[in-house]
């Protein structure tokens, strides 16, 4: 491992300037992905830009409309220890409490999980199900895009040189809706998802039909998938096993997994079905409680 410069910009402008100095960079948020990758020689950069001293990235709060804007570097532990978030967005807690253990959760953050752009990232299907967007910032200004539009391949995303993730925005959730995140790992801890699924269900006023649905599946393609067909298969249906099975089939049809040491193609397609149904069941429970 060669020598690396360490920079700790105190503002967005300082960070943008650091990105223009001609060196190759990575951001250092919690460091729980990047430090491992640098040490193992899987990545090489000239400088690490610490993004934990930029105020906009270190705070979170509710927007006027009832959405939640989360600074990219806010550690997961801060999020899941917030009782208001736990009450209003339990699906966010599902994923934030699953990433690593307490040490990891005390450092790692949404910005890092998304910035790392792994196909199995655990917070991504949950956030996609919740309809999250990203605010990206650069010297030129900011832009906002749906999270599902961010990823382009394993470790790849649309971030332009000079750009970083400022906030992750969870929009106000529809009335009578509930969301759930579910992952499968072979052990009870310390594993990368074989498949993970985020699902949101929205019921009509009578509570008898599904008014809207979002399903996202991870670890079954080069990027986390937003499976619109699964949502479409649910809308207008009575919530229940029959509709869930159809959504699960759509999710499985969208899956394009590989076989590796973490799972086989057949297993992952099968699990996509199983987890989609299980996530939808729990999302329904939450929608009914909402």
């Amino acid at each position: 491992m060669k020598e690396i410069d360490y920079l700790a910009p105190a503002s967005l402008d300082e960070a943008y300037a650091a990105l223009q100095n001609g060196k190759t960079s990575a951001f250092l948020a919690g460091g729980t992905d990047i430090i491992v990758q640098l040490r193992e020689g899987r990545k090489q950069v000239d400088q690490l830009i610490d993004v934990k001293h930029i105020p906009e990235l270190m705070r979170y709060g509710w927007t006027d409309g009832g959405g939640l804007a989360i600074g990219a570097s806010v550690p997961f532990a801060e999020i899941y220890e917030d009782a208001e978030i736990a009450r209003r967005l339990p699906c966010l807690i599902d994923c934030a409490t699953l990433v690593g253990g307490i040490q990891i959760q005390s450092r790692a953050c949404f910005g890092g999980n998304i910035g790392n752009s792994g196909p199995a990232a655990d917070t991504v299907p949950a956030l996609i199900a919740l309809g999250a967007t990203l605010t990206l910032g650069s010297r030129e200004g900011t832009r906002e895009l749906p999270l599902e539009a961010f990823f382009t391949g394993p470790g790849q995303n649309v971030l332009a040189p000079g750009e970083l993730i400022v906030t992750v925005n969870v929009p106000p959730q529809p009335a009578r809706s509930g969301a759930f995140f579910h992952r499968f790992i072979p052990r009870n801890e310390m594993d990368i998802a074989v498949v993970n699924v985020g699902a949101r269900l929205e019921l009509d006023a009578a509570g008898e039909r599904i008014a809207g649905a979002r399903v996202s599946v991870g670890a079954v393609a080069p990027t986390p998938l937003f499976v619109e067909e699964a949502g479409a298969a649910l809308v207008g249906q009575a919530p229940g096993e029959e509709a869930f099975a159809r959504a699960a089939d759509a999710a499985a049809a969208a899956a394009r997994p590989i076989t590796d040491m973490r799972g086989s193609i057949a297993q992952r397609v099968h699990l996509t079905r199983v987890l989609t149904v299980r996530a939808l069941r729990r999302a329904l429970e939450r929608a009914r409680e909402a």
Binding site: P186, E189, M190, D191, M261
Partner: peptide, 29 residues
């Protein structure tokens, strides 16, 4: 019995040469 194995690809490369993917049980298992 449940998870441990040297997982080789066809070239003879062990693909899970770390405690992340060589799955020994944790206390939670």
């Amino acid at each position: 019995a449940l998870n441990e194995e040297y997982y080789y690809n066809e070239d003879g490369r062990m693909e899970n040469a770390s405690f992340l993917d060589y799955r020994m049980p944790t206390s939670l298992d």
